[in-house]
């Protein structure tokens, strides 16, 4: 079947099976920043933004996003780079596998929450697992990024 949608603000038309998940379609069309982790909604590394909201692409059928807008980390490149600098400064970056999904979730949080408390930041990021950093350095970096008005 054919599914028309926008990816990173560009109109796209994907050919896919009716039961194909968005993660598989995006990766097949070379959006390789969308990572495959647990493949059952637990880890968050497959997160993309669907109409601006973070969703696990491993559990969203491609057929269900007809005429909707998908954002991968390439679609927020400037913000992701800015967050990456804070990650570097704080030593919050190790293997990098979860970084694209984390950047998208932090970007969505910045849009959704006004001056979130440290607790609200932690709660927003609960669904993004990172097996390297222990989260403390990430937390410092994200707090600094959230305060960045540039």
């Amino acid at each position: 079947m054919q599914v028309k949608l926008t990816v990173n603000n560009e109109p796209k038309s994907f050919i896919c099976e009716p039961g194909e998940y968005l993660l598989d379609t995006l990766r097949r069309y070379n959006y390789l920043s969308v990572r495959r982790g647990c493949d059952n909604t637990s880890c968050g590394v497959c997160t993309v933004l669907l109409d601006g909201k973070p969703v696990p692409s491993c559990s969203v059928l491609t057929a269900s996003v007809e005429n909707r807008s998908i954002t991968t980390v390439e679609g927020i490149q400037d913000e992701a780079e800015k967050l990456g600098l804070y990650f570097g400064e704080e030593g919050a970056d190790q293997c990098g596998f979860c970084n694209p999904s984390l950047a998208l979730t932090v970007y969505a949080m910045k849009k959704e929450l006004y001056k979130p408390t440290p607790e609200e930041i932690k709660e927003y990021l609960v669904g993004n697992l990172c097996r390297c950093t222990g989260y403390i350095a990430q937390e410092r970096a994200i707090k600094k990024y959230m305060g960045d008005k540039s």
Binding site: T41, S42, P54, V60, T105, G127
Partner: peptide
């Protein structure tokens, strides 16, 4: 609020 992460609660 206590169910999984926000990405799952969004679907």
């Amino acid at each position: 609020h206590n169910i999984m992460g926000i990405n799952v609660r969004n679907i």
